[in-house]
Every structure is written in structure tokens, then in C-alpha cells.
Write a protein that binds this DNA or RNA. Sequence first.
DNA 1: TGCCTGTGAGAGACCGCTCCCTCTGCCTGT
DNA 2: ACAGGCAGAGGGAGCGGTCTCTCACAGGCA
Lengths: 330, 330
Amino acid sequence: MKRPTLEVVAARAGVSKSSVSRVINGETTVAPQIRDVVMRAVQELGYVPNGAARNLVTRRTDTLAVVVSDPPQGVISDDPLFSAVVRAISRELETAGKRLVLMLAESDQSRTRVVEYIAGGHVDGVLLVALHGTDPLPGALARQGLPVVSFNRTSAQDVPYVALDNAGGAALAVRHLLERGRRRIATITGPLELYEARERLDGYRRTLRDTGRRSIVALGDFTRASGAEAMRQLLEDDPDLDAVFAANDLMAIGALRTLHQAGRRVPDDVAVIGFDDIEAASYTSPALTSVRSPMADQATATVHLLLGLIDGGPTGPVIMPNELVVREST
Amino acid sequence: MKRPTLEVVAARAGVSKSSVSRVINGETTVAPQIRDVVMRAVQELGYVPNGAARNLVTRRTDTLAVVVSDPPQGVISDDPLFSAVVRAISRELETAGKRLVLMLAESDQSRTRVVEYIAGGHVDGVLLVALHGTDPLPGALARQGLPVVSFNRTSAQDVPYVALDNAGGAALAVRHLLERGRRRIATITGPLELYEARERLDGYRRTLRDTGRRSIVALGDFTRASGAEAMRQLLEDDPDLDAVFAANDLMAIGALRTLHQAGRRVPDDVAVIGFDDIEAASYTSPALTSVRSPMADQATATVHLLLGLIDGGPTGPVIMPNELVVREST
DNA sequence: TGCCTGTGAGAGACCGCTCCCTCTGCCTGT
DNA sequence: ACAGGCAGAGGGAGCGGTCTCTCACAGGCA
């Protein structure tokens, strides 16, 4: 029942442990006949190296931690984002032959556990997914002396990150609306304590200002309900608006609903554009035009950043471009 | 720079390695003053036990593998399901003080890697999320001698699982439509090679048969597009139908769109009911009535099943009940 | 007082692997 | 023919913990 060890394989093959180890690890300084006899023994015994023993001596684990730092009802908990990001990361690590330990840091208690685990030498590096720029976790982890990268902009020193060009994406959206002939373009913002939200608002503002137009702003918090509410507010404040740029798709979906209830036709009366291009954006009616956030690409880039860091390469921040996906709502 | 070891802590505290080990592991047979002096040394040095060394000797890792077995475009890849399941599992394992290694088995190659990894003794058990009853992975993993449970029904022997009461849920849906006074109730099925899909179809058929009514069936594959297409088919086959039970929400959303395009009002002309109650079900207009699949509860139950199995308890299959969430579409 | 029991600390073997070092034996050059 | 070099195999010391076993010592009882 017990799994065979290196020693057993060596005995079976009639060679030393060292030789078996060399064969297992694909070293070249092994004579072909030794290699063959070892391989046969490995096959016959169904030998698989013990990971813990190997880790202990090599001090490598080929395992990376993915830490998702967000309260249970937070922004990342938004299904599409979580799913897309985690799966993309997983695929990329798989390709690189690494393993992924997933940790959710939803409370202070679990944050402590995360730091302890990281300190325990179980992983070679950490990929952090945390939207709040003020999250203390990046800093705490970086202090452990392990390579740490962030899937998102972070205020922590020494933590390289991959970020979206949020301002650029917002500009893309606003320019698109202008090209469609819209004159009174409002925006629904995300929670302004998030970089994303601020940058998207900045992009919107700057683009309008450059064309001599006025900003019309309502605050949201990236949830669907807040989008619906903000839209109500906007209609009240400025009944003549003819376009809305929502800082994410969920809020845009909420806005669509309010507009529908208010009897405004989309896009005829009011054009609506979202941000992120989540799956649900194509389900709405009318289907939502959106700025695509290349989450999967961003995740992949973050993995490469981390792998590079582990291999000792120097690394700085990376900015991802985004593109516009035009559907029926504009 | 090097992290301190047990031995260093022992030296600092002026006691033996054994005593430090006892304190670290919370054994009770330690005199208070020894305990204190050890704790102080641990604090001062910032000692954290080395995981690999501990694993090596205890043969426990406190780590469980979560294997998601599904092709890239498969059913589980559906965002909401993946996200809800993975997060619920993660939370529950966190509470139990266990770690989670996430592995996607999307190809034969990665399946092989999964089996090898499992065999490498890196984990104490495996939680499998695989919708295809014919998946070879459950069997292959069970053969490794490690505890394995499945998040879903599986055909493999010796693999306990947690499943939904799919037939019961379908019956719930159909009875609801009957109570609403619907007479011609159609269904859109999932891919029939999946247990889920077959059971939901069975529940639908049986309930109608019991009330002396005829089944009207169109085949789908759990995607939104297939739902839209199946709905077109149904309208053509039976223009007088007044209700549709879709075997999942995505297909129901597709059906809603087709009905809208065909000028049928929902629920006035045709009532629509989905299955799973994904987040998007409440975003549609009209909001979708759906049979709630308690994914999170199911995930939690699966974790407990696995933990029980690891602790040596005997375990059989578990069936989860579901409930109806009535919204605007019926 | 002497013996026995029980409590709690210390010593050290061992988990399974890697990797450094030593050693053998063959090939090459002069 | 012999020294020198080198390829390649084996030996064995750790890696950092756990856990069994031994041992010292204190207290209880006849």
C-alpha cells in the first residue's frame, strides 16, 4: 500500500539513489543503459517522487499563491471578474508547469492566515488580486521577501503590477458617443476610493473638457442597483441627456432598466455604454456596447510578470490597452 | 535573511527541539515557564514552521485539491457556476483550516498532470467538480488511494458525491406553471449526455404525465444560443404553447430573447422558467423565475463530505433539495 | 526511609529527496 | 608505457521538522 521511494527504485534497478535521482530529473550525464533500467523500475513500481521531500531540500515548490483580497460583497466577488481572472491565471500557470494555491482574503483573520502561510515557505511567489489600492496586504506580503505581483494597481512599493488603461478606455467610450452625435453625455462612476473608478471618471472628464463639453456625474458603487439609482438621479437632474457612460457593465445594466421603466428608448433616446464587457453585457436587450477589459490577457500578463520576477528579472508596471465592443445600445 | 529553524528557536530559548515542537503544536504536557520562554523566542525570531519538513514526516499536508474537469467551453466554464462553486469551496476549506490547490483539467494532457500531482502526495484529498458522468478522472483519482469526492453525480464506484435533486426541481417548476394555469408547457433540455439534463427532463415528463398532459420537447446544450434556437423551433412546432421550462437559466435567457423578437409577451403570452437561478436571472427583463440550485450549499456539503472521508468516516451520496424563486416571467 | 509511579524534558532516529564529494575506470597525449 | 584528465556512478550528509524512547526528578505510600 505504501508508495515506493527513490531507494526502493534504486534497489530494484540495481543502481544508486543518486543515479535514479539524475534520471528522474532529466540530467544528461547518465549512461543510456542506466537510464533504461531506471525507467523500467520506475514504471514497474509506479514510482512518483515525494513532493515534500523534494521541496524540503530544493527550497522550491513550483507552487504559487493566488490571493484574492476583497470583502465577500466586494467588487472582485462579482462573478464574471473572479471567474475570468482565476481561470486565466490557472491556465497560464498550468502551461508554465506551476501549481496554484487559491486563497481568499475576505477578513482580517484570513488575511493573517494568508501572511502566515506565505511565510511558511509553501509557495515560490504570490499573485495578488486586490482592487483596493489601500489594501495593506500587498505591503505585508512583499515584506516576506517573496516575489509578489499584483493583478491590479497597488500603492505598495516594490510590488509590480499590471493595470488597465482605464482613462484611455473611458476616453474611447466618450469619443464613440460623440461620434454617434451625442451632445449631453452623463457618467455613472464607481466607488471613488478605487483607482479604476477614479481613472475612468478622469478619462470621461478630460475627453469632454477637450471638446468643450460639460460633465454630468452621478455616483455609483459598481453594483447594478447603484446604477439604476444613479440613472434615476441623472434623469431628474438633466432630463435632456442623450447618452450615459457607466463605469462598469453592471451599473450600465441597472441604468438600462431604469431607462426602460422611464419609457426612454435605447439607443434612440439615450445611448448607453458600459465598461468591462462582461458576459452579461451581450445578454441584455438591447445588447450593451462596452469597453472591453481584457481580463484574461491582463491575468496572463500578471502571471508572466510573476514568473519573470521569480527568475530574477527586473520588472516594472505593465499597462494593458482596451478596445471598444459596439453593440446595440449606442 | 534565512528564516529561523526550530533548532535556532530552541537554542535561543535554551530548551530542546522537542520542547519547542510541543509548544508549537499546542501540546498540553508543557510547563508554563517553558511555554513562555519558547513563545518569546518564536516572537523575537519571527519563526514560522517549514511546511515541507512538516509534511514530510507527518504525511499530512492540510491541502486539498479541487479539480475542475471540463473542456474550456464546457458547462462548468459557465462563469456563475464556476465562481460560486469555487468561492464556496474555498471559504469552507478556509474555515476548516485547509488549503486549496486549484487544478483545471481541460485536456487529456492536463488530466495526466492532475493524476501525477495527486499521486505525488501533495494533497490529503481531492474534490472533483466534473459534470460529465462519464469522465474517466474520478475513477483514475480514486485508484490513487486518496480520499476523493465529487461535487456532482459520477458513475465512478467508490466516489461519494453530492447531487442536486434535479428531477424534483423540474417537478417544482412544472407544478408552478400548472398552478399559474398554463396548459401547454414545453421544455428546452440540456445536453442529454449529462445527468443533470436527463434528470431535469425526466422530472418535467413525469409531472406532466401524472396530470395527463403531453410533453413538448426541444433539445438544447445549456448555452444561451441553443436556448434561443430551441425556442424558435418550439414556436414553429407548437405556436399555441403558453409556457416554457428551460433546463438552465442561460437557455431561458436565450428563449426570452427569441420570444421578444417573435412579439410574444412574457409572461402574458408565454411564461418562462429557468433552472439554477444564476445572478443574471434577476437582470433580465422581465426578471426570470427560476429553480434555485443551491450551488454554494452543495459546495459546502461536498467539502464536509471530503473532510469526513479523510477523517475515516463512512460516507454515501448526498442529495440537495432545491427551491423555486418566483419573479416576473411566470 | 525506600520503592514505585507519574510527569515532563531531552536525545536522536527518521521522513524521502538532492547534491556535493569521492572514486573508479577509460581515453588521450607524449 | 604512463601520467593526466574526465565522464559518470556511488556514498552520504544534510534539509527541518516529528515522535518515540529514555531519563531525571518529584511525590505518594507502606
